[in-house]
């Protein structure tokens, strides 16, 4: 399968990675090469095979319903690029 620059541009938007036209032009053939190589997986007959769910037999442990965290806003905001009045601040969102 061949991926065109429009698809690469769409993916860059979906992934929220800004890319110049030149970057997209450069990435498209690389993308095609990697995907072309990956495509060999299609050869494998996997009918009747369940997709792997857990690599090592193990079951999901559940936690008790106890409050053990929170109440520590300074720790949560410590690394924020912009924090004001106890909130994280971002450019205004118009909904």
């Amino acid at each position: 399968m061949s991926v065109d620059t429009d698809t690469v541009r769409k993916i860059s938007r979906l992934a929220r990675i800004q890319m110049s036209d030149a970057e997209i032009e450069a990435l498209a053939p690389e993308f095609n090469k990697i995907l072309g190589w990956i495509d060999q997986l299609g050869e494998v007959d996997t009918s009747g095979v369940e997709p792997m769910a857990a690599v090592v037999p193990n079951t999901l442990r559940l936690r008790d319903d106890v409050v053990t965290e929170g109440g520590d806003r300074d720790r949560v905001l410590a690394n924020a690029p912009q924090a004001e009045h106890g909130f994280f601040a971002v450019p205004k969102v118009i909904e």
Binding site: H85, F88, A89, V90, V93
Partner: peptide, 13 residues
């Protein structure tokens, strides 16, 4: 998201 606390920013709680 709080939109009405600042003219150019939204606040995240």
């Amino acid at each position: 998201l709080m939109h009405d606390q600042h003219p150019t920013r939204s606040y995240v709680d």
